[in-house]
Amino acid sequence: MIGFATRRLIQALIVMLVVALLAFTMFRFVGDPINQMVGIETSIEEREALRERLGLNDPIPVQFLRFVTKAAQFDFGTSYQFRQPVSELFAKRIPATLELSLTSALFALVVGIPMGIYAGLNRESPISKLFLSVSLVGISLPTFFIGILLIFLFSVTLQWLPSFGRGDTVQIGSWWTTGFLTASGLKALILPSITLGLYQMTLIMRLIRAEMLEVIRTDYIKFARARGLPDRLVHFRHALKNTLVPVITITGLQLGAIIAFATITETVFNWPGMGLLFLQAVQNVDIPIMSAYLLLTAFLFVAINFIVDILYFYIDPRLRVGRP
């Protein structure tokens, strides 16, 4: 177990280093950082002095090392547009994105998993076919258009729910703000989290259904039926457990994807999260924010993958127990 975890940790570290190299390349070579920091009237000497002070004349490996050390301490430099440290900008916006992502992930899992199991077990039933058609519409509608439709219906036409912002928030601790504790905060959360979760929900449902269909055809399921085991045992103890391994992988990846897709949802609903910040950075070529966002999301994905690998280890005895 410890060997397995260490190997995975080392792999995760390597991935992070590669991403850091990418982020650094972006940071250092896309556009001139000095030009972005100073005004037009700054003299060449002043620029050169600043360059020296920032260490931009050091050998590249030294610069990279400095970049990584700083990033590990959450120091990502200063935003070109806002003239503020990137880490401060992020800290303010992380709670909004995380609350939105968590809510929609929960929605996707709670609705998607049972639908997938049902459709996998009752392949021919009309309800399964309905689920499947709905899911196809779900993956065909682009996220942003779902958002627009929901706003048009529930905000503009019916005027039931707000179409932008987080509503009222409550301060918890020194920097966390939550919308979970106020009525308007919860109301504001409904449309964005459905928008964000719908696509993931359909994906999870379709995946579980496909895996179920695959597992049901294996010899050990046939043998379990031939032993006369009741359907309940065959379906839930044998079939479902064997579908878990691939399902957990993809679900893990999808939960990571939610953070990325939040960018779109946050734009549509003007949700003050990291995604909105990132998008503004892309539009204004604000490289420090872009590279920090890249590092942060990479870290989240790598962490999720690591957890998924450890989960495997508990589910699949073939990894846990060696051959005699």
Binding site: T218, D219, Y220, F223, A226, K241, N242, P317
Partner: peptide, 11 residues
């Protein structure tokens, strides 16, 4: 069944 390698639930 024929194939003992696939007849048993691996988990």
């Amino acid at each position: 069944f024929q194939d003992p390698l696939t007849s048993l639930d691996p988990l």
